[in-house]
Design a protein around this nucleic acid. Sequence first.
DNA 1: TAGATTGAGTTCCGAAAAGGAACCTGTCAA
DNA 2: TTGACAGGTTCCTTTTCGGAACTCAATCTA
Lengths: 163, 163
Amino acid sequence: MRWEELDRQPCSLARTLSVLGDRWTLLVIRDCFMGVRRFEQFEARLGIARHVLADRLKKLTEAGVLAKVPYQDRPRREEYRLTEKGLALHPALIALLDWGDRYMAGPEGPPVQRRHRTCGHVTHGVSVCSECGEPLDPREMSVEPGPGAPDDLPLPERSGKTR
Amino acid sequence: MRWEELDRQPCSLARTLSVLGDRWTLLVIRDCFMGVRRFEQFEARLGIARHVLADRLKKLTEAGVLAKVPYQDRPRREEYRLTEKGLALHPALIALLDWGDRYMAGPEGPPVQRRHRTCGHVTHGVSVCSECGEPLDPREMSVEPGPGAPDDLPLPERSGKTR
DNA sequence: TAGATTGAGTTCCGAAAAGGAACCTGTCAA
DNA sequence: TTGACAGGTTCCTTTTCGGAACTCAATCTA
């Protein structure tokens, strides 16, 4: 499969990765959540090649994740801000971050922590069911065709007992 | 910055992406959660070049996300299974999937849905605070150095008012 | 018992993407 | 009129990917 076909796959993860699934994109979005908005700031913090950065920002803007907002005229300058669609990536970023905190940190612990201002505690995200509020366990979830399923949706047979 | 330096960055997201941050890896893991375990199954479902698949499976195994488990001798054959570290990616997968359901689905809706067997409802994940249980809002979280922070941790200044 | 099959890769080649450095374009300030 | 600043583009080299063919060991199958 070519990478450009990914956004037409009948899978929301594949479609998500057609936007976010490369080396740099999620790091750009991480920096957006940290308040970074300008080309030079992204470049300095990420150490990314300039043309790759320009390409990623363009694609994220086209995808509606970022928006270019002018912050001065003469010369016209624009900065990149998360849209509502971009802000909605927050749970996914937190989940990836929490995984890194748990499994990729050295013995000293994670380099950065997040505090929930609402309750004042250092926090990590817990993924709960939107309906009953219980934490979601992969073994307690089943996958089924949704409203937008094509006729030939390939749901794999499980080989042997479930995981 | 070179890609190989990413796992030494003082950022758990960067370290996570040093393992997961490329075109195919998260799709491989998605299939693992769907019960796929064998080389040929991955190849058939993903349409990935075989040597790229071999490389990704090797790296995921080295990273401790998958484990090679023999399922027969004579001839010896091995399959790939999620370890506990791999299973812990479930919340991140769900969060990315839910984002795709909301923002990348066509007008008919998402192609696949998940049902929470515990409560019987079609569900999506909600990310809540581990301490107070309230849903996490990016505006209510602040970032600060953690126990493993280096001395020169680059937390950006916010330019202008906070988002 | 020769030949096909299966599962899990490896090799090779041309195309696409990334890394790195230099260059370009308005505008203003010295 | 020279320099700085912000935000890119261009060019060239190195890596990685996509696709097809090949390998290899251990069975089935005729």
